[in-house]
């Protein structure tokens, strides 16, 4: 799938939860959202992308990357 699109979608989700003052709550909220609404092949691809590290482009927000990595 188009990784640019997936990363944008994930970052959009991250932007919403970023507002939460408690970082761990934000991370778990993002992860739950991805788990509940993303079809497995989308999740697979984004996890793979997150694993490539913080610098991989397109860039995932750090908060989002951390959340994705909890999905494994």
């Amino acid at each position: 799938m188009d990784i640019h699109r997936l990363v944008k979608m994930a970052n959009d989700i991250g932007s919403f939860y970023e507002a939460l003052p408690d970082r761990s709550e934000a991370i778990s909220s993002i992860a739950t959202h991805l788990k509940n609404f993303w079809e497995p092949r989308m999740r697979r691809e984004i996890i793979e992308h997150a694993r490539q590290g913080a610098e991989a482009t397109p860039r995932l927000k750090e908060l989002v990357r951390e959340a994705i990595l909890t999905l494994e």
Partner: peptide
């Protein structure tokens, strides 16, 4: 037990070949 594709994801997956 896993969620399926949404409409825009279907289009993306179609272009992706899956």
């Amino acid at each position: 037990p896993e969620p399926g594709l949404r409409i825009p994801n279907m289009f993306d997956a179609a272009l992706d070949g899956s």
